[in-house]
Design a protein around this nucleic acid. Structure first.
Lengths: 245, 245
DNA sequence: AGACGTTTAATTGTCTGACAAATGAAAATT
DNA sequence: AATTTTCATTTGTCAGACAATTAAACGTCT
């Protein structure tokens, strides 16, 4: 494991890259213990603080975990889907907020991805996923629910729909898209009527998944997508009208 | 910006979290300069190395960038889609390799997501994207191409297909799924006949996208998906047979 | 001999102080 | 006025030290 001596600055970045590459290539297998900080400092001919900065970079990506004590040290971490969810959601949220991604674009992506899951969910749905979906639909109908709570339940419903596909790769990819949308969805004020409409469509989707009818599920998801877009357009139109006045 | 004094260990992690939350919440806007390391050390009542470890964690996530010199310091970084691609691909690759995700599962996810893009790509495809797809198809037909190069071209073809949807959120999400598949795809040895078959299907897909025929594009993608699964199963069957012998 | 407390060595977490390198701004010079 | 020089600020790096933690080795008592 060597570092590039051509660019003298940012030693910790170079060391982090060297170790990261070793992990990705498989040279350092999961649960392998890295040399101690002092040994790494010797190997790379740098000081311990510099090594530590490199290790913190890797820890931020969940590539290693550290443990104190006699048998402690830094260990190659098995990256689990659950661990990656959080980072994925953070990154997606920032991407949307920092790049002025329109509601329409984010919404389009989200529903396109969800519709990709629907046929698989219809085939594989378990009783557990169906129960979660029904429970969230029921919650959405409770009076006195804030818009934020309604949105959170909406996210939970869609998460269950995606998880029903039984494919962790899909669940991981969609977690970012669905959760990152929530701040944007929160901008919409849901009237009693629009909530009723959404809850109805959720029911239709749940029914179709229960009946393992992929076509119907897809059709109702398409309806929900266009209705959501419609709601957002109304909000934007109202806001613009107020600005003009 | 405060840190939780209940858990004394891992100060750098707590400080990183505090700053990260400030960025996500928007309290620290893009291009805002953070206080100098010395000032942060004062504010959080820790030493400078601890602050530096926290900053390196954030730098690893591309949340900040640092600059030396008189007017230097740490600045909140605008997270761009291009920057996020790399992290997404790294994470996806490790998730697949470290969690024993089967070829079938990864393949299913990838084609499900791609089929979600197809209707949008058929509508919005530009001449540029079509040209890229045709160019990659041509390259795939060149004699003497290694399996790795064939796979790389395959990835490029599918990237163009996804990018044609004109939705950066979709492109970002799919980048991980498609690129992370490549190491798995590389395990397949492509015979002359299977390459011909794949190139033919790529041609069909490109034709359908050119003709803006979403239905046909979806049908050919489904064909390609099942053919790829078939190839993988053959490889696995052969390997198992050899082991038994 | 076996169970239980104690010591000890290894390792990470944190601090202090220092110097080098980069960099833009201010001051001095032409 | 333009250019060069100086300088203050800030990050990058180093050396050494001590505290906190942890498991293994050791010793002691039953």
């Amino acid at each position: 494991m060597k570092i590039d001596p051509s660019t003298p600055a940012d030693l910790s970045q170079q060391i982090a890259k060297a170790i990261r590459d070793a992990i990705i290539s498989g040279a350092l297998p999961v649960d392998e213990r890295l040399p101690s900080e002092a040994e790494l400092a010797d190997q790379f001919s740098v000081s311990r603080p510099t090594v530590r900065e490199a290790l913190k970079r890797l820890a931020a990506q969940s590539l290693i975990r550290t443990q104190r004590g006699a048998t402690g040290g830094a260990f190659v971490n098995r990256l689990r889907f659950e661990d990656a969810y959080g980072q994925q959601i953070t990154t997606s949220t920032l991407l949307l907020s920092m790049n002025d991604v329109s509601f329409a674009t984010a919404c389009e992506a989200r529903y396109a991805l969800e519709r990709a899951c629907a046929p698989l969910s219809a085939t594989r749905r378990s009783a557990d996923h169906l129960a979660t979906m029904r429970a969230e639909i029921h919650r959405q109908g409770q009076p006195g629910l804030t818009d934020e709570a309604f949105c959170a339940s909406d996210v939970a419903f869609h998460r269950a729909l995606v998880d029903a596909a039984g494919n962790p790769v899909l669940s991981y990819q969609l977690a970012g898209a669905v959760e990152a949308m929530q701040p944007l969805m929160n901008m919409i004020t849901f009237t009693a009527r629009s909530r009723e409409m959404i809850i109805g469509l959720h029911g239709d989707i749940a029914d179709a998944i229960t009946a393992q009818d992929a076509g119907k599920a897809d059709a109702h998801l398409a309806e929900l997508a266009s209705y959501t877009q419609q709601l957002a357009q109304d909000v934007i139109a109202k806001r613009d009208a107020q600005r003009g006045a």
